[in-house]
Design a protein around this nucleic acid. Structure first.
Length: 586
RNA sequence: CGGGGUGUAGCGCAGUUGGCUAGCGCGCUUGCCUUGGGAGCAAGAAGCCGAAGGUUCGAGUCCUUUCACCCCGACCA
């Protein structure tokens, strides 16, 4: 490609609405353009990168025996109503109607469609297992799109679905996909880590996320250096007894009140920190109360709950939401807490509240004795409270794990980092096959639901994550396997006939050798071209300049300061060996 | 959806005690000059001042409504 004829539009000025480095670089290097909030045009250069990522994905999927299909992006509503997700997915789904007022959505994910396909095509165990995938445009009407392709509303996703006759079969497929994903991200040249994850709206029994580590990542993860445990904080657990001491066994003498409950005056101490300071005790011995609701109207199935947790921890709302099986979880507005729950915000406690309100307690509460709770009266708390003083509806792990907490596996201190979720794999089990009646007949002639897994990769997000991880103050530094071009050939002085002839010859030679080369033949000054070359981040730069008269050119790697002057006749083979080493050697 | 903010040339911005012809930098066009890290000079093109309504002799500027976009939260590949 000749730069002079290309549709590459670079800019030295930063766009006003980009926050993170990769978004700025994507804009400055002319890789993407925004059409509307969360909706982007992929420019020619970015398209080259995306096609490379897609082809890496394809080769690994095919190697894992997955077969590519293309499902529609406009999906009929009835399938979604069958699984109940027409409601559950809610306003994140873009719903549309045709001229006959029939309802459709623009597909946000494809479990329903693929399961519908398989229930019609598969009858016998002999047809299983099978894994299908597609690379296709999705639309999710995100509440807040941001960071360019990082959280776009319209985006390209690779989604794969496996169908098995047994849990063991699913395990095998899940491991295969896990390995394929590792290969894919490694081949894309990004540093990633795999973490235990929450399954969210997709559902299923277990899942792992593939995270590209970057400070700008939207997810927090914790990991353990000594045993390699790692998890999204949404999912992570810890060892409570290492922090609070052993659990107090229910019904034992220790669980019985040791001292009488005592009402204490605690003026203005309405937060855990204030209260701990006021009472001169550790936060551990306090019990925090939080008020939640499923957000529905009073006469439309509203359910209010309170959650209890040791003052030593923060509450993880995702864990609570999963435990309650709520579609929605919101905090009750503090001005309504008294009326709805019968507790006094800031001085709230589980004793004496509205008996219809469920009390969900974190497991950490089992480790507390003679603790402090609010008295449900302004400026008063109760001390010497124990679990036997009120009735807990259910216990659950509700802890938000943080850096420094003990690793759930080995007890070492956990570290915290941020990551960009580029891939997510799920063991779905029979959630969709049962809802849609996707069954097979086994050897004994029995009908059973098919056991499913699903596996997603955000293609555009992976591209941007690669930029987020591979850049410097001058621009992008593409990893070789996904670089839009392998080489940028820069003619430094286009009015110098010797240089020009030399560069044109080299360009032809490289094309003849099938080298992916961008030829900067523009009549610009050298400095201008160097800046563009750095911004675009093409891994190898060959510059034709003042040494052209001696039959020599300059060879430079984007991610190194070293400049080599090499003969025109040897540069092509040098370029070729660098490219093949980095693409095949990874 | 709740909270905060911004809409003026392709991009980044100034101009808002109402006033005459709406400006600056970058980019763009033409010419000259220049060619090793985003050169210089000269000439030029480019704006329904987000949209609609109102107040006024007069609105980019004031009022009302509306739309779009961005940031903080929940959601996700």
């Amino acid at each position: 490609m000749r730069f002079s004829q290309s549709f590459i539009r670079t800019s030295k000025e930063e766009p006003a609405d980009a926050e993170i480095i990769s978004h700025k670089l994507l804009m400055r290097a002319g890789l993407v353009r925004k059409l509307a909030s969360g909706i982007y045009i992929i420019m020619p250069l970015a398209n080259l990168v995306i096609k490379k990522i897609e082809n890496i994905i394809r080769s690994e999927m095919n190697a894992a025996c997955a077969q590519e299909v293309i499902m529609p992006c406009i999906l009929p509503a009835n399938l979604w109503k069958e699984t109940g997700r027409w409601e559950v997915y809610g306003s994140e789904m873009l719903k549309i109607k045709d001229r006959a007022e029939r309802e459709y959505c623009f597909g946000p994910t494809h479990e329903e469609v693929i399961t519908d396909l398989v229930r019609h095509e598969v009858r016998s165990y002999k047809q299983l297992p099978v894994t299908l995938y597609q690379i296709q445009t999705k639309f999710r009407d995100e509440i807040r799109p941001r960071f360019g392709l990082m959280r776009a509303r319209e985006f390209t996703m690779k989604d794969a679905y496996s169908f098995d006759i047994s849990a063991e079969g699913l395990d095998i497929n899940y491991k295969k996909m896990h390995a394929a994903y590792c290969n894919i991200f490694k081949r894309c040249g990004v540093k990633y880590t795999v973490v235990d994850a929450d399954t969210g709206a997709i559902g299923g029994s277990s899942s792992h996320e593939f995270m590209v580590i970057a400070p700008s990542g939207e997810d927090a993860i914790v990991y353990c250096d000594s045993c390699r445990y790692s998890a999204n904080v949404e999912k992570a657990s810890t060892q409570i007894d290492k922090i609070l001491g052993p659990e107090i066994p229910a019904g034992s003498s220790a669980a019985a009140p040791r001292s009488k409950i005592e009402k204490i005056h605690t003026p203005n101490a309405s937060t855990i920190d204030d209260l701990a300071k006021f009472l001169k005790v550790d936060k551990k011995s306090l019990c925090k109360i939080l008020f939640f609701t499923n957000g529905r109207a009073e006469n439309d199935g509203r359910e209010d709950v309170v959650a209890l947790i040791s003052g030593a921890f923060e509450l993880n709302e995702i864990k609570l939401k999963n435990h309650l099986k709520f579609i929605n979880l919101e905090m009750i507005p503090s001005e309504e807490v008294q009326k709805r729950v019968g507790a006094y915000p800031g001085f709230g406690g589980p004793i004496g509240i509205n008996p219809n309100v469920k009390i969900i307690a974190d497991n950490s509460v089992k480790h507390l004795s003679d603790f402090v709770v609010g008295a449900n009266e302004k400026d008063y708390h109760l001390k010497n409270v124990n679990l036997s003083d009120f009735s807990v509806t259910s216990f659950a792990d509700l802890v938000m794990v943080d850096a420094g907490h003990p690793c759930p596996q080995c007890g070492a201190k956990l570290e915290k980092a941020r990551g960009i979720e580029v891939g997510h794999i799920f063991k779905l089990g029979t959630k969709y096959s049962e809802a849609l009646g996707a069954k097979y007949i086994d050897e004994a002639g029995q009908e059973n639901p098919i056991i499913m897994g699903c596996y997603g990769i955000g293609v555009g997000r992976t591209m941007q994550a690669a930029v987020e991880q591979n850049n410097d103050q001058d621009g992008i530094c593409w990893p070789m396997p996904i670089a839009p071009f392998h080489v940028i050939l820069v003619l430094l002085n286009s009015s110098d006939e010797t240089q020009k002839q030399c560069a044109e010859d080299l360009y032809k030679k490289m094309l003849a050798e099938n080298i992916e080369v961008l030829f900067d033949d523009r009549a610009e000054k050298p400095g201008f071209k160097f800046k563009d070359a750095d911004l675009l981040g093409i891994p190898i730069r060959v510059a034709v300049g003042r040494y052209a008269a001696e039959g020599k050119v300059e060879f430079k790697r984007r991610n190194s300061k070293d400049l080599k002057v090499v003969g025109v006749d040897e540069v092509v083979s040098l370029v070729k060996s660098e490219i093949s080493r980095e693409i095949n050697g990874l």
